[in-house]
Amino acid sequence: MGFKVVVDFDLCESNAICMQIAPEVFEVRDDDFLYILNETPDEGMREKVEESAQRCPKQAIKLEDLSSEDE
């Protein structure tokens, strides 16, 4: 179980929608770049990160399942 947050920084335009939904994971700082605070958040954060992925205007956020990656 568990998942990894992957952002395509070529697509990301730092509009901070993800940060509003899941500030525990995403932060846009004063330099206007997006930082991922926690690449492998707890399972409890999955719903919020999925919502961020849905509402990212650039479709820049992906959730990768850690278990399927190990297979």
Partner: peptide, 9 residues
């Protein structure tokens, strides 16, 4: 963007 999201909250 950061300010917009903070004030939006």
């Amino acid at each position: 963007p950061r300010h917009v999201m903070r004030y939006r909250a």
